[in-house]
Nucleic acid binder design. Sequence first.
DNA 1: ATTTGTGCAAATCGTTTGCATCTGA
DNA 2: TCAGATGCAAACGATTTGCACAAAT
Lengths: 143, 143
Amino acid sequence: MNKHMATQSASKDVTDILRTAGLRPTRQRVSLAELLYSKGDRHISAELLHEEAVAADVPVSLATVYNTLHQFTEAGLLREVAIDGNKTYFDTNVSDHHHFFIEGENRVIDIPGEVVGIDKIPSAPEGMEVVRVDVVVRIREKS
Amino acid sequence: MNKHMATQSASKDVTDILRTAGLRPTRQRVSLAELLYSKGDRHISAELLHEEAVAADVPVSLATVYNTLHQFTEAGLLREVAIDGNKTYFDTNVSDHHHFFIEGENRVIDIPGEVVGIDKIPSAPEGMEVVRVDVVVRIREKS
DNA sequence: ATTTGTGCAAATCGTTTGCATCTGA
DNA sequence: TCAGATGCAAACGATTTGCACAAAT
């Protein structure tokens, strides 16, 4: 059934993931997914992913990159990290964790392990429920 | 020296604050400061503040509102709250505290008291120092 | 064949900037 | 006076959208 097994070992899983998520595994989506997940946890902007795709000979339009990132996010494959205001980062690590934000460099990195302990999660106001707690530790070059 | 004392009781303090911060107390800056600080703690966007100013018969350009907000921030009179990505909020509460973010409404409110306890602040990577820890508790209408 | 995705370029939104004009000390 | 502030409109960067074309099932 698969005509080119050899070249599809990596694509195969991605294809299934997409299908399971209810997304048609198109060329662009498969390629983008591979770029996203083949290098460990990443925090990437739409623009950067677009550049990577083009560099990897997967010409895809910026608009499609945006669409894809949002679809992946809705499907739970990515998490949007809103830290800086002007740019949106997408985190390939969907599990519960927090971030360092390097000021000046505008870079986001995961805080390793279960290092942040919040001992008192404040109770939400009447009729509200907590969706998620985000912790951002802003750091800079030691002066 | 003050010709219209009666109308200046509120303006007086603001004027001093601005002067102390090294900012010339111009009409616009004084008015914006009053709008900002006369209603308790606020989390306001440039656009909204602009609308309020115009509504209060203090015609000021949006560009000036942006300039002013940034100058106030540099002077330590305001704190920038980056939560949402597409919009920047300025917090009139400069003290150490954290925020609820109401999804859907895109509203920011202070978490009252010293309710958030972070028991382990992760150590920053080599050569880096922690500037600040931001905690955002995302909440939504209970379903 | 039908449905869904893609590309392009134009549109939008928040924010910033350049520059001529005004204003506070 | 004159450095510093303001207003306007144009410039900007990130993101979105509309619509004709292409690809997946």
